[in-house]
Amino acid sequence: MIQQEQYTRTFSSFSGADIVATFNGRVIGEIQAITYSISREVAPIYTMGSPDPRSFSRGKRGISGSLVFVQFDRDALLEEMRKNYDNKAPQMLGYQTFIANANGQGMNGSMGLEMQILNGLKATRGTTTGYGIETWDEKMTELGYGATNTFNPDNLTDFFLPEYADQLMPFNVTITMANEFGQRAGMEIYGVQILNEGSGFSVDDVVTAKAYTFVARKIKPVERKGNLRLEGRASGSPVQDNKPVGGALII
């Protein structure tokens, strides 16, 4: 038993089955893969009299990556971000937009008009072909005046819940690793902003996936965390009188 314990301490490795990803304090079980890359501009410096670079100057750094989710019967990222966990997770931040460009109810009580305009809402004034941009102009003007005779541009905007992933405010991703031997590690990606999203369906596909690309501000690399096996216990389990607890031998 002692030899086995010493052997399992020698190497620490983790597979995808040992990893959980947390998005702004929310664990999303549909995550299938997460990748990232760090690149930096490096430019050669030349002077007259030599075709070879005298030196190299390092410039801007960029962090980017991708997220892949298995597609079940929901948009996992957006739906989890919208959930309210009664102050146990950060509240989702809405995005500001013009009321005529949004759907649903805004955080200040305004009702979005986008679907009405897209579905052919006719202007109440003007020509008989008053659709589209003419309707948008009219509705925005009416919103600006509201119930008064004074135009107030503050009435034109409100905060709405995102309809697309690229409307999500920046968030952090935490990657937690824990294997069967009690070894643990973790890393963080800060300031993630979604750029693109894509998915598709085919009769030949058994699994449907949804992919996102993102940029980030900073990455905290993988760091080793406390090995619970060294303490001879599982997380949260009591240790009593240096005796085996849960089948683990305390050394």
Rank of each mutant, 00 (worst) to 15 (best):
T150D: 14
T148C: 14
I117E: 01
G106M: 12
A147E: 15
T135E: 09
T150F: 11
G146A: 06
Y131P: 00
I117P: 01
G146M: 03
T128Q: 14
N101L: 15
N108P: 09
G120L: 02
L156S: 02
T157G: 01
G126V: 10
G126A: 07
K139H: 12
M115W: 07
I117M: 07
Y131C: 00
R125W: 06
N155A: 14
G146Y: 05
L113K: 01
M111G: 02
M140S: 06
M111P: 11
N152R: 09
G109D: 14
D137M: 15
T128I: 11
N149V: 02
L113R: 00
N155V: 04
T129Q: 13
T150G: 06
T157N: 02
K122G: 02
T157D: 03
T150M: 15
G144Y: 13
Q116W: 06
M115Y: 08
I117K: 04
M115P: 02
F151A: 01
N119P: 10
L156P: 01
K139W: 13
N101V: 05
L143C: 13
I117R: 08
D137Y: 12
G106Q: 04
M107L: 11
L156N: 03
G120W: 06
M111S: 09
G106H: 12
N149H: 09
K122Q: 08
M140E: 02
L156D: 01
E114Y: 11
N155G: 07
W136N: 03
N155K: 14
T157S: 04
T129C: 08
T127G: 10
T148V: 15
G126T: 04
R125K: 13
D154Y: 12
Q105G: 10
W136C: 04
L121S: 05
T128H: 10
Y145W: 13
G120E: 04
N101I: 01
A147Y: 11
G104R: 10
M140W: 01
T148R: 15
G112N: 07
I117W: 00
T135L: 13
G132Y: 02
T148H: 10
T135H: 05
E138W: 01
G132R: 00
N108D: 14
T141Q: 08
T141I: 08
A123M: 04
R125M: 06
N119A: 08
W136V: 05
L118Q: 12
N108E: 15
T127Q: 11
G126S: 14
P153A: 10
T127K: 06
E114K: 15
K139V: 14
R125Q: 08
L118R: 05
A147H: 15
G146F: 07
G104D: 07
T128S: 11
G126E: 12
M115E: 06
T124N: 13
N149D: 06
N155Q: 13
S110D: 12
E142L: 07
L118N: 10
P153Y: 07
E114N: 09
N152A: 05
G109I: 09
Y145V: 00
N149M: 12
G112R: 07
D137C: 08
I117N: 01
K139A: 11
N103P: 13
G104F: 09
Y131T: 01
P153R: 12
F151M: 03
K122E: 11
G132D: 00
